[in-house]
């Protein structure tokens, strides 16, 4: 099973700008490399990433996009993304990665804004 590491502060002050880091385990096989036997290694990429913010009390809501990304073969293996969030209200950050061969990984992190 793939693993992911999310770095977000647990608590923040309203209006504060936070840094979010997301690292996920994936080879990002380009489709251009050959094995030692000379066979082309099939392309296996994460294609999409998103981070949504779901306000507390609105659990059935899919939330608002903080950032979304389409990734290609030139993204390094075990993709790392860092971006920001302006803390407004408490809620949950929902991370989602999707890719070839049915790859799908989700993570959730709660954020308390005071």
């Amino acid at each position: 099973m793939a693993r992911a590491l999310i770095t977000v502060p647990r608590t923040a002050k309203r209006g504060e700008i936070l840094e979010i880091r997301a690292l996920v385990q994936h080879p990002m096989e380009t489709g251009y490399r050959r094995s030692s036997e000379g066979d082309l290694l099939p392309r296996d990429l994460i294609r999409r990433f998103s981070c949504r913010f779901v306000e507390s009390g609105k659990t059935d809501d899919t939330g608002v996009i903080v950032i979304a990304a389409t990734l290609h073969a030139a993204i390094a293996a075990n993709p790392y993304l860092s971006f920001n969030l302006r803390a407004a209200t408490s809620g949950t950050l929902a991370f989602n990665w999707e890719g070839d061969n049915g790859f799908s990984h989700r993570e959730q992190v709660a954020l308390i804004v005071t």
Partner: peptide
């Protein structure tokens, strides 16, 4: 550790 990809293996 928030950037070192080896930490994914550690978590595993």
């Amino acid at each position: 550790d928030t950037q070192n990809p080896a930490m994914l293996w550690v978590k595993d």
